[in-house]
């Protein structure tokens, strides 16, 4: 790709070659350290080429691990293999290079095709991005957010929403991570004993992906299907339990319905408009770097843009 060298001076580091579904938190830690190292050596911006399947987990966890960034950290990949002339890899890489080399954004984000056409890429906040299609090149969408910017191969960056710029402070690297956190989906007829399983296995935290505003079964006709006592038991056993929504779009709530209130009273923390996967890695990050009581406090407070106080009207299905 000869045009990359006309965008920036590039130094290439290869921390790993691995399928993204095979990655663990140890790989996240390795990448976070590599990024910090590159910035400390004077890099202006970083591009990370990454498998697309778990790219949004990585972008979220890197957002937490790398705070007070001096410049942009851009994750990118391809939905079509690079052996074909039609691959999205080329434009994604060029656009990512442009963001890394030219923008004053100091955040972690994902830069991939904005549409099925090869016209421009979106740069999406790392904690608000999600892979929403198995195969399309515009699979990554901002959820409960707008793209920070869109960028064309020709080099135009159009900023679409507020973003963090560098303050000149030094980068804060925190690579602690507690892997014993689980993401559990509630669904009709789901067995709440799954919560007990994680408690018994010594887990430190659970994120529940509830329905609608953040529901799980509380008072079903068959008492065995109620999650309430199980959640209570988990909290009493010392786990941090967070609640998100499988709707993905929108904000959970702990008071609109009686069932929500009971769940909150049991000690579950409703996680605002945070994506389930983001809440998961945030909880792992918090439990890996802070005391449990601090983690509980911080889980539903915004740290790096993962929670928005306001949901703007044009943030749906972007």
């Amino acid at each position: 790709m000869p045009e990359l060298s006309s965008i920036a001076n590039i130094n290439i580091v290869n921390p790993m070659s691995i399928a993204s579904e095979d990655m663990t938190y140890i790989d996240w830690q390795t990448i976070a350290k590599a990024v910090a190292n590159a910035f400390n050596k004077g890099a202006r911006g970083i591009v990370i080429t990454h498998g697309t399947d778990t790219m949004h987990y990585s972008s979220a966890v890197l957002s937490f691990m790398l705070q007070k960034l001096p410049g942009p950290v851009v994750l990118t990949g391809a939905q079509r293999s690079g052996d074909r002339g039609s691959s999205d890899a080329f434009m994604n890489l060029v656009c990512s290079g442009i963001i890394a080399a030219k923008s004053d954004i100091a955040e972690v984000g994902i830069c991939m095709h904005a549409s099925s056409s090869d016209d421009y890429c979106n740069f999406i906040r790392g904690t608000k991005a999600r892979k929403m299609h198995t195969s399309r090149r515009d699979a990554f969408r901002p959820i409960n957010n707008k793209p920070i910017a869109r960028v064309s191969e020709k080099g135009n960056i159009e900023y679409l929403s507020d973003y963090t710029k560098s303050t000149g402070e030094s980068l804060e690297l925190r690579t602690g991570y507690e892997p014993k956190v689980a993401l559990v989906k509630f669904y009709p007829n789901s067995d709440p004993a799954i919560i007990d399983y994680y408690v018994e296995k010594g887990y430190k935290g659970i994120i529940i992906e509830g329905t609608g505003l953040g529901h799980v079964a509380i008072a079903p006709r068959e008492a065995a299907y109620s999650w309430l006592d199980h959640v209570k038991k988990a909290v009493d056993s010392g786990l941090v339990v967070g609640v998100t929504s499988q709707c993905l779009y929108g904000r959970v709530n702990s008071s609109v319905y009686r069932n929500l209130r009971l769940l909150a009273e049991a000690g579950a923390i409703h996680c605002e408009d945070m994506l389930p996967e983001v809440a998961l890695v945030k909880l792992g990050f918090l439990l890996g770097n802070y005391k449990k009581s601090e983690a509980e406090q911080m889980l539903n407070k915004n740290l790096v843009g993962e929670i928005s106080k306001r949901t703007e009207a044009d943030w749906f299905m972007v």
């Binding site: 074909r84 099925s116 056409s117 090869d118």
Partner: peptide, 9 residues
């Protein structure tokens, strides 16, 4: 849709 293509190996 609008696309571009490249010579690849």
């Amino acid at each position: 849709v609008v696309r571009k293509q490249r010579a690849v190996a």
